[in-house]
Design a protein around this nucleic acid. Structure first.
Length: 213
DNA sequence: AAAACGGGGGC
DNA sequence: GCCCCAGTTTT
């Protein structure tokens, strides 16, 4: 597989169609972490709006720790599970202050201890906030990897493991980002735009459609 | 391994 | 209005 080519195609399509990516042009690990938690089961457009409202008030873990849950709730309304997330964010602030010196940890095991942080969020933070080689498998990455025929997996965890075997490490971060943008714009869950897709010829799913499936 | 959890957008 | 999308946490 020519990974450079594959990733380029996906990146270009996403860019052309203005895929919404919540961490775009953000480099503060704390803000990336908070946005990533907000993004759980929520589209990136909604995540971006809520993040902007929240970050007008919240700049640091201390801010989250001292705010009332209801205040946080109001600011992040619009994302899924916003009441749960408000509680988690307050707790997140407290934990970061108490146990991590108000810094976002850069180790997977530490990140996974934080409320609202699972594998996907943790890997986004590692990749986007700390520039580490990590693959964050959300439903886009999972779906596209399987459609293309890169992997044949049932769970996101499997997808992460399999991708790590076949994708050269230096491409991990780009593959990550590229597939999310590509999934939002072309390779959608329902009605993917295979007729506009530059990858149909190499895509297991696309080829099966062309045959008349 | 499976289910619970809540809100928004497309048709 | 109904159907579909989107990870973490708990059972």
């Amino acid at each position: 597989m020519d990974w450079e080519w594959l990733i380029n195609v996906m990146e270009n399509e996403a860019k052309k169609r203005n895929a919404a990516v919540f961490w775009k042009s953000e480099r503060d690990p704390f803000k990336i972490l908070v946005s990533a938690i907000l993004s759980t089961r929520t589209r990136d457009e909604a995540t971006i709006e809520a993040s902007e409202r929240l970050f007008r008030v919240v700049k640091t873990p201390e801010d989250l720790a001292r705010m009332k849950v209801e205040e946080i709730e109001k600011l992040i309304r619009g994302v899924g599970f916003y009441r749960e997330k408000a509680k988690k964010l307050k707790k997140l602030g407290e934990i970061l202050v108490k146990e991590f010196n108000s810094r976002v940890p850069d180790k997977l095991e530490d990140l996974l201890k934080l409320p609202g942080v699972g594998r996907k969020v943790a890997n986004v933070v590692l990749a986007e906030a700390f520039g580490k080689e990590a693959i964050a498998v959300d439903t886009h990455v999972h779906r596209i990897s399987n459609r293309l025929g890169l992997v044949e997996t049932k769970t996101p965890e499997e997808t992460e493991e399999e991708l790590k075997k076949i994708v050269p490490k230096k491409y991990w971060r780009r593959v990550n980002k590229a597939m999310v943008g590509f999934g939002q714009t072309i390779c959608k869950p329902i009605k993917p735009k295979c007729n506009e897709c530059k990858l149909v010829e190499i895509c297991k799913y696309g080829k099966s459609l062309l045959k008349g499936g």
